[in-house]
């Protein structure tokens, strides 16, 4: 068995490895190289050294976008996870209509980001109309608009993961906690939450990276208005890639930095929450 596994390993792994190389590894390495180049299309490139990276830090647009992204990520990671957990907790109590509610909360996740962005733009503008303004009036509106949108979209998905986690808690653990005289709150903090830490790891990872990399929703909802104040990193990169001629290299360099930031944050988060997981 072991032997034949070893023998056939390349056969089974090859398609995936090949696909991974073609669609991820090779473009990634090319992207790294391109961040040191000046180019219009990837067919004709000229090497310029670290000039692109220097240009980034002269651009306050990028730093503003970074700060906006960080603020957005912090707020949305907290709200999404808290709300998703609360919903999951309620919907595992065996209430009537649980399945209906679970389905309903999950549905928004099936709609694409661009569509959601435009739909919420109409909704929010419709509400703000009563105050004689639009979502572009102030960066605050755009910020909270994005937070609401992301919550609406992601809560259902995270809720499903939390539900799976909660349902996996062995019944005897809860029972013995009850026997020991733990109340509902004590059970929640001392049994349920530690036992769903694996779900927390996944959910934090997903919301953190999704919020940090957010593009479609940002593009459709505000497109950075007013004055680029609601521009997140991905949108900023996109715009410097296409909207200023000759700055594709700078855009590429921004993308590399962006990758490093997301990578480091995700790694720290994984290590930190892994430590809190309880072995079953």
């Amino acid at each position: 068995m072991q032997k034949s596994l070893k023998k056939y390993f390349p056969v089974f792994a090859l398609p995936t490895v090949a696909a991974f190389c073609v669609s991820f590894l090779i473009p990634f390495v090319m992207g790294l190289y391109l961040s040191f180049c000046k180019f219009t299309t990837i067919k004709k490139v000229s090497f310029v050294g670290i000039k692109n990276f220097v240009a980034i830090f002269a651009d306050e647009g990028f730093l503003n976008a970074l700060w906006f992204t960080v603020k957005f990520t912090v707020v949305s990671v907290i709200t999404i996870n808290v709300l998703a957990f609360v919903l999951a907790y309620i919907l595992t109590r065996g209430l009537k209509g649980t399945n209906l509610f679970r389905t309903t909360f999950f549905t928004p996740n099936l709609i694409g980001g661009i569509v959601l962005g435009y739909i919420w733009q109409i909704i929010i503008n419709g509400v703000l109309k009563y105050f004689d303004v639009t979502i572009t009036y102030s960066a605050k509106y755009g910020f909270w608009g994005l937070v609401i949108l992301m919550n609406w979209q992601l809560i259902g998905y995270m809720m499903i993961i939390y539900i799976a986690g909660i349902q996996n808690i062995p019944k005897d653990l809860i029972d013995s906690a009850a026997v020991d005289g733990a109340g509902r709150l004590k059970t929640l903090t001392n049994v349920t939450i530690p036992m769903v830490m694996p779900s927390v790891t996944i959910c934090l990872f997903l919301t953190l990276t999704n919020s940090f990399k957010l593009f479609d929703q940002n593009y459709a909802l505000t497109d950075g208005a007013p004055n680029g104040e609601t521009q997140m990193l991905a949108l900023n990169i996109f715009k410097s890639f296409y909207n200023t001629s000759g700055s594709k290299g700078t855009g590429q360099a921004k993308a590399v930095i962006f990758f490093l930031i997301v990578g480091v944050i995700a790694f720290i988060q994984l290590v930190a929450t892994r430590n809190k997981e309880v072995e079953n």
């Binding site: 572009t136 009036y137 102030s138 208005a225 004055n227 715009k239």
Partner: peptide
């Protein structure tokens, strides 16, 4: 005009102006 970004900046400033900000 030097770039699309210039136009966007101009537009953004006009937007703030029409909104009275």
């Amino acid at each position: 005009f030097p770039s699309e970004t210039f136009k966007d900046d101009f537009g953004g400033a006009l937007l703030k102006y029409v909104q009275g900000q």
